[in-house]
Computed example of a mutant assay.
Amino acid sequence: MSVGVLSIHGFSGGPYEVEPFTAYLRAHTDWLVEEPTLSGHGEELHMSGFTARHWLMDAELAFRSLAKKVDEVIIVGFSMGGIIALYLAKRYRVKKLVLLSAAAKYVSPKQLVKDFKMLASEAYHHNLTNNELFLRYQHKFNNVPLASTIEFMKLVKMVEPYYQHIQIPVYIVQGKMDGIVPYQTAQFLFDELSSKEKNLYFSDKGKHHICFEEDCSEWFPQVLMFLKGE
């Protein structure tokens, strides 16, 4: 029985976001692991003009292509990729799901407005270079159009009604220190999904990019055991 893994990255990111985990899967299995880059995403962002529909179609085409090569498909979704994974699981025959920092809820628009106000104030006082938030998101502020962020929010809203229809086995991993996706989101998803086999791992010190945290050595093997059915 041949197995394929489709790994889907997050909003304004690229396959590198999940690379430590996909590398682990490659090292410990003979599975075919594929990591498409969604339109406008990757190392260089060119997001203008691309919509949620483009990203869903990219994922569907990648899924169909992989499904032709293997008997079973597992989907790993990071952040927005977790939401796309749920979309695919509703529409196609998926064996198992792994949801990493899945963005079923995101930092509230109120919080974003607060952050932007703080940045505007610091810009006025010529203090932006010292602002950690600004340094972290400077690249994205410059390269992610507001229209793209609105498309991301649309995608999340569109997929939300699907949660209760998902019945396949799922493993959810979430960092408690995630500044992008509130960590309670993982419990919300766990409760909403209709899967009989559900697992939830909280990383106490984990931030949003969960595949790069120190406790990966703990949860990587646990997720692999789940995927192998051990």
Rank of each mutant, 00 (worst) to 15 (best):
L38C: 09
Q187E: 13
M158F: 15
Q111W: 07
G4I: 08
L128N: 11
R53G: 09
K117H: 09
R136M: 05
V33P: 10
D30R: 11
I74H: 14
Q111D: 13
R93A: 13
F78I: 01
H209F: 07
V73W: 07
T37S: 11
V5H: 07
I84E: 04
G77H: 07
G13A: 14
T149Q: 11
D71C: 01
K114E: 15
A120G: 02
A120I: 04
G82D: 09
S101Y: 13
V223M: 07
Q222A: 15
D115W: 08
E35K: 10
A147N: 08
S194T: 01
P145L: 05
K95H: 12
E213W: 00
H125E: 11
F78C: 02
F50N: 12
G49A: 09
T149P: 01
K140C: 01
F152E: 11
E213G: 01
Y201F: 15
Q174N: 06
D178W: 02
A123C: 07
M158V: 03
K90D: 10
S203P: 05
G229A: 03
A59M: 03
V173D: 01
M153P: 00
I166T: 09
Q174P: 02
K157N: 14
D191L: 02
V70P: 05
K140E: 13
E60I: 04
F226W: 03
L45N: 11
E151W: 06
I74W: 13
P161G: 10
P221W: 07
I8W: 00
E132V: 11
E17A: 07
H165P: 00
E192N: 05
E214N: 04
S48T: 09
D215H: 03
H165C: 05
A67T: 00
D30Q: 12
F78T: 02
H208M: 02
A52N: 11
G77T: 13
D71K: 07
S101V: 12
L200P: 09
R93H: 13
A120H: 02
F212Y: 14
Q167D: 08
Q111V: 14
G81P: 04
F11N: 10
L45P: 07
I210S: 05
M225H: 07
M80W: 05
